[in-house]
Structures are given as structure tokens and as C-alpha cells.
Design a protein around this nucleic acid. Structure first.
Ligand SMILES: [Mn+2]
Ligand SMILES: [Mn+2]
Ligand SMILES: [Mn+2]
Ligand SMILES: [Mn+2]
Lengths: 218, 218
DNA sequence: ATATATTTTTAGGTTAGTCTAAAAATTTTA
DNA sequence: TAAAATTTTTAGACTAACCTAAAAATATAT
């Protein structure tokens, strides 16, 4: 069994491994968990003892298959709880993350199974992120950052890169939701801002926004 | 804000105060929490600093009004989660307690409000225990242990005194559920066992059972 | 290639929450 | 009411999870 802190380290490493095949550096983990590198070294040694990570001094860490499974299960719980909060308890998508950070640590296999059933086996969370199955497998779909689309390309909005409350509220205000069709009408070389069409409305958005929205091209 | 451990101490004291007006002894708390008296003394000092209990050496502790409110809120969360698990997630009444012990510590006022609404503002948990309102008030009803009923008295089964999984499963097997009408047909002086009628079935139950079932006389 | 900068680890400390053993206070018994 | 038993507190230690500061290793720049 893993402590709350150990679970958070595993999850952090799991998320960091999505972008790379190399070992995850002490500093990267420290940054993600808002802690100190020395604390990370301590914890990594413990996780290594428990055989959830492989660690060689100065080389960074990698999750073992066992570690990946543990981590994926925490992510699974996190995302299922987020769906539950939005679908059943009237939370908005910018309110669920912090509560899910707590709920993901509840230990009860039956509970999460029943939540999954109750929700009708959802495949994605409210932010468009895929929900791992019980074995830890995830179904990744082909998606591109809106900022990489060319003029006249279009697709469906399927996810966010930044799921901070501020960004999500901003999207709400602009009427940008998952599932909406978006077409790039103009790209400004000057500041990389875009003019897009969504719901037959023209919208001008900055590069920062376009860099945090995922589109499934169509 | 209170730690998980502090919350468990507050809840333990809260439950122990139901049976008495006197200060709650160090040993009683240690027994309830399955810990050592010395640990209790340590924690009590901390809780006293935080003004949730009043403590004088060797005199036991009492919750302050503030402490009572905190404790009642944890009990509220515990019982609402138990209702949720039974009503919405197909848990049986003997499976919910341990999960609720974890869920009661989740910090999100909105979450518990929404669960309350989602459940239709239940007043009692699956074991017949009253759910405190947001201010910490509970609605106590007049109830008697089945063992105290006289021959030919009857009433509705409204609660259990022992909510261990073993006892609850035993009740399931015998067909004894909350809400059922129970009539005492016989009382044996010899071993204080009872013959009762429930659903037009005659049942013989030991004093130990009768001592753990609450009846609202009618 | 050597000096400089950065990253990582080690060493030593802190706090929360627990424990055992012993001392002190209170309660019970005779 | 004095001795015995019990309860409670204190003293000192331990572990998990952090921290700061310094040392060691690695990476970068000239
Ligand atoms: Mn989240
Ligand atoms: Mn999410
Ligand atoms: Mn319970
Ligand atoms: Mn209950």
C-alpha cells in the first residue's frame, strides 16, 4: 500500500513520462510537486525500495511496469471523480480538479468500479483527458494544438493543455467548449494570434490561448 | 484547518460525549481510537491550543461549542457518504463504514452540499443514525433497545447499536431491516432471549442481538 | 581542457503523530 | 486513611515527510 505522498510522487512521474522516454530528473519532479530536490531524492529512494521506480544516482527515475499501473490507477480515479462531479453534482469544469486531488486517494476498489458503472463507463474526463482502464491502458487519440493548425484547417475541440481555473473560466466566457467545431480563418504572423470561427461566430484569440487548446483535425 | 488525525480525535470525543456530561477520559479516547493513552495526552494538548476542547490535567476533556461544530460536520459527512454509497452505488449497509471513514475527511463544502441535494436531504444514514444539519444540530428521536421492550410491546426497528459488518450481515440473514414492525411475543427469564414477530414470522433472538437493535415504540 | 554553472546528493534538523517505560496523580480497597 | 491499583502524564525515541546548507557530480561555456 502507498501513502498519499508516495501516490503523488508516482502520479507526478507518470505525467512527466508522457513527454519523454528519458529518466525524469529530480528537479522536474520537485518543480511539479512544488517541493525541494533534496526531498525528491529522499522519496525516490523509498519508491525504489518498493520497486515502483528504477533509480540510479544522477540518472533520474523511470516507473517500473508495476509503478505505471499504480500511477495510472490514481489518474483513473482522479478523472472518474472529475466526471462524477461535473455530470452528477453540477460542478463546473474549473471547480473539479482540487476536489479530485483529494478523492483520487480514497482506497476502495468497489467504490471506483461503482462510480465507473454509475457514470456509464466514460472514456474522457471533463477536460478531454482519457480515463485509463483498470489495467492502466489509455486510449490516445490524434490531437493537435490549435496553434499548429494552418489557415482554413478545422476540427473539433477535444482538450485543454492548461486546466487552471482561470483558463477554463476564460474559455467559458468566450463560449469555447469541448466538442465544438473550430475553423482557423486567419493567422497573424505578427503576434501569432488567430481568428477562428466557432458556432458561426468569429473570434480573435491570442497565441497563448491557441497553445493550450487541443483540436482533433477533420 | 484540522489534520486527519485531529478530525478523528474530535469525532471520537463527540461520540463519547453522547453518553455522558462528564469529561471524556484519556483512556476512553485511547480505546476508541485504538491508540495509547500517552498519544492521546499529546493530541489533547494540541486540540486544547486550537480551542476545540477544554482540558485540565487529569480531568478529561470536553468539546467546546466550536469543537462540537467541527465534529458534527465530520459526522454529517460520514453519514451522508454512507447514504450515497447505499442509495446510489449499490453498497450494502455492512460495506459502507470503512469507505465513509475515508470520505468524511474530504474538504469541500460544495461537495457535501451537492451530495446532500443529490440524495434529497436525507435525515438518517443506512444504520438509522441521524444526520446533523450544517449547524451541527441533530434530530434525536425516542428509541429503545429491543431488549428493554416488555412482552406484547411492539414498534418499528429504527437503528442498530453495533454497526459491525458481522452484526449487520447477521441481521440481513434473519430478515431484520430498518423500518420493519417488530412485536415481542415472549421473553425468557432464563437467558433473556426473545421471541419476536417480524413480517408475520416468528423469530427467536438472543439477548446480545436484542441489545443492539433500536425500536421506536408504537 | 579547464573553469564556471547547474544539478543532484548528503548531512543534519524540524514537525506531526506515534510508541514504550517510568513517574506522578488519582481512585479504589481494605 | 493508608496501601494498592489504576489512570494519566512525562520523558525519550522512532518514522514519514519535509526543510536548509554544503558537498559532490555532471553539464556548459570559453
Ligand atoms: Mn484534474
Ligand atoms: Mn482533468
Ligand atoms: Mn459509519
Ligand atoms: Mn452509519
Amino acid at each position: 500500500m502507498f501513502t498519499l505522498s508516495e501516490e503523488n510522487y508516482l502520479k507526478a512521474i507518470y505525467h512527466l513520462e508522457i513527454d519523454t522516454d528519458k529518466g525524469i530528473s529530480t528537479n522536474a519532479i520537485a518543480k511539479k510537486l512544488i517541493t525541494k530536490a533534496s526531498s525528491v531524492t529522499d522519496m525516490i529512494k523509498k519508491l525504489s525500495e518498493k520497486e515502483v521506480v528504477v533509480y540510479k544516482k544522477y540518472q533520474g527515475v523511470k516507473l517500473t511496469n508495476f509503478g505505471k499501473k499504480i500511477a495510472a490507477n490514481i489518474v483513473r480515479k482522479h478523472r472518474l471523480w472529475e466526471v462524477f462531479l461535473v455530470e452528477k453534482l453540477n460542478f463546473s469544469w474549473d471547480e473539479v480538479h482540487d476536489v479530485a486531488e483529494q478523492l483520487e486517494h480514497i482506497k476502495s476498489p468497489k467504490l471506483i468500479d461503482q462510480i465507473d458503472t454509475f457514470l456509464g463507463f466514460p472514456t474522457h474526463d471533463p477536460h478531454g483527458d482519457p480515463i485509463p482502464d483498470k489495467e492502466g491502458n489509455i486510449n490516445t487519440i490524434e490531437k493537435s494544438l490549435l496553434s499548429t493548425l494552418l489557415k482554413n484547417e478545422s476540427g473539433i475541440c477535444v482538450g485543454v493543455n492548461d486546466s487552471s481555473s482561470e483558463f477554463l473560466k476564460f474559455l467559458d466566457k468566450k463560449g469555447i467548449k469541448l466538442g465544438k467545431q473550430i475553423t482557423v480563418l486567419e493567422k497573424e504572423d505578427f503576434d501569432d494570434s488567430l481568428t477562428i470561427r466557432i458556432d458561426d461566430i468569429k473570434l480573435s484569440i491570442s497565441n497563448k490561448i491557441a497553445n493550450n487548446l487541443y483540436i482533433k483535425k477533420s
